[in-house]
Write a protein that binds this DNA or RNA. Structure first.
Length: 427
RNA sequence: GGUGGGGUUCCCGAGUGGCCAAAGGGAUCAGACUGUAAAUCUGACGCGUAAGCUUCGGUGGUUCGAAUCCACCUCCCACCA
């Protein structure tokens, strides 16, 4: 039997990772032994984004403490759409698309948990497997009968939707909770799974599952929700000017991922260290103390970025991100060798190639996506926001040619303080 | 099926025949200050160097002129059956 770390809950609480839990004393008691727990991830896109990182890492924390994690991929629930705290009814995706997404998610969640031969080896399950063959009548009689509509509409997660003018909720979405509850009950039956974790928005769905499991199997199971990750400035966590931060490196490069964390506000960074890293409390307090004493630029952001990038993209991905970041932000562009530049290209720095002999700067800005239109490109140049190979350019008619490039082949274009693009003259 | 209310530029939201590329707020972007922070100030924020062009759910119409009026279609919401 795997040894169990009985301080797990205390650690999670120290990290601020516990939002709500059912019967705390009994759950603490329950977790003295190795248990099976699960967390669901619905396929709403072809990749998870960093919003799912907290639950994924908590699954990992549970496994490290000796419990068996199940990552549930919502092949069934993803077809319905969770209405919890969503202000609008959502469009249904087609079944083929959902299938593809399910496969990607399986691979992604697998990276965060261990599959070994020990008692607490992780597993990935798909709720489509036990939902697809349940016919409507059976479902309504055996599952639906356990739910009271009046208690369902009391749930905070759908209440505001029901009360809000101009929006409604279809029966399909309303029934989502029942499907998710059915998952918990099934996983209890099949795996003796006794704990479900999820975001704070999942509380209603989780307690629904707990009730159903009690009614169908006369068993007590537990729920624990994690806090919503919020930022001190009130803006939404996980978005940048260029969009969502995805876990898939094809959608968000390792470099962009690293940069996202580097840009964490001071007001949030120590909290995020607790949420997103496995550093122990003493270590994190030491970092905080040191930053305070230093009065200058804090170290916490770079530690956070390093740790999280390593967790998600591995040591290689981290090194690639670091190489680009250092090259670009140290300001020593002219010292880069041809190999360095090539490596930046391979590391996934935003880049493009051209076989032309010369291009206007305005054109380059637009082609590279650094500016949305010629008009914006010109505005950036006039505002002194553009530099090429480290030098500000304020000439609207500037033209780039290979000769002027680094090593005769590359131009590093910078717009604003943080956006870069590598232009390679392939001709 | 009936009745009523809606669909405005990324979001919210004003605009009911010309003064509207369309108020205001938010978000976003740039500059200054900085630490690739925060706060603050300044500027930008449909496309076009410009003349100008293309937008206000869709199509068609009325008009010198429509986001604004009319018809049909479509989607959403509420209530009634």
């Amino acid at each position: 039997m795997t040894a169990v770390d009985t301080n797990l809950l205390a650690d999670l609480q120290m990290r601020g990772l516990v939002n709500q839990m059912t019967s705390p004393e009994e759950l603490t008691q329950h977790l003295q032994k190795s248990r099976v727990l699960y967390c669901g991830f619905d396929p709403t896109a072809d990749s998870l984004h960093i919003g799912s990182l907290v639950p994924l890492l908590v699954l990992r924390r549970f496994q490290q403490a000796g419990h068996k994690p199940l990552a549930l991929v919502g092949g069934a629930t993803g077809m319905i759409g969770d209405p919890s705290f969503k202000s609008q009814e959502r469009k249904l995706n087609t079944i083929d698309i959902i299938d593809q997404w399910v496969d990607r998610l399986k691979a992604q969640v697998s990276a965060f948990i261990e599959f070994n031969d020990q008692g607490n080896s992780a597993a990935v399950v798909n709720n489509y497997d036990w939902t697809k063959d349940v016919d409507v009548l059976t479902f309504l009689r055996d599952v639906g009968k356990h739910f009271s509509v009046s208690s369902m509409i009391q749930k905070e997660s759908v209440k505001q939707r029901l009360e809000r003018d101009g929006e409604g909720i279809s029966f399909t979405e309303f029934a989502y909770m029942i499907l998710q509850s059915f998952d918990f009950s099934q996983l209890y039956k099949q795996y003796n799974c006794s704990l479900q974790i999820g975001g704070s928005d999942q509380w209603g769905n989780i307690t629904g599952g707990i009730d159903l499991t009690r009614r169908q199997h006369r068993a007590q199971v537990f729920g624990l929700t994690l806090p919503l990750v919020t930022k001190s400035d009130g803006t939404k966590f996980g978005k940048t000017e260029s969009g969502t931060i995805w876990l898939d490196e094809k959608k968000t490069s390792q470099y962009a991922f690293y940069q996202f964390w580097i840009n964490t506000a001071d007001a949030d960074v120590y909290k995020f260290l607790r949420f997103f890293t496995f550093l122990n409390e003493a270590k994190m307090l030491a970092i905080e103390e040191q930053d305070r004493a230093a009065q200058g630029k804090p170290e916490a952001q770079s530690i956070l970025a390093t740790e999280v990038t390593r967790l998600v993209h591995g040591e290689k991905g981290l090194q690639a991100a670091l190489r680009i970041s250092e090259a670009l932000f140290s300001g020593q562009l002219e010292q880069l060798t041809k190999e360095d530049l090539q490596q930046l290209y391979l590391d996934g720095m935003p880049a493009s190639q051209t076989s032309k002999k010369s291009i206007t700067l305005v054109q380059v800005l637009v082609d590279s996506g650094l500016a949305k239109s010629n008009k914006m490109a010109r505005e950036f140049i006039v505002n002194n926001a553009v530099s090429v190979n480290g030098d500000k350019v304020s000439d609207l008619d500037a033209v780039l040619t290979p000769f002027l490039g680094l090593q005769g082949e590359y131009h590093v274009i910078k717009r604003g303080k943080k956006l870069f693009h590598l232009l390679h003259w392939a001709g």
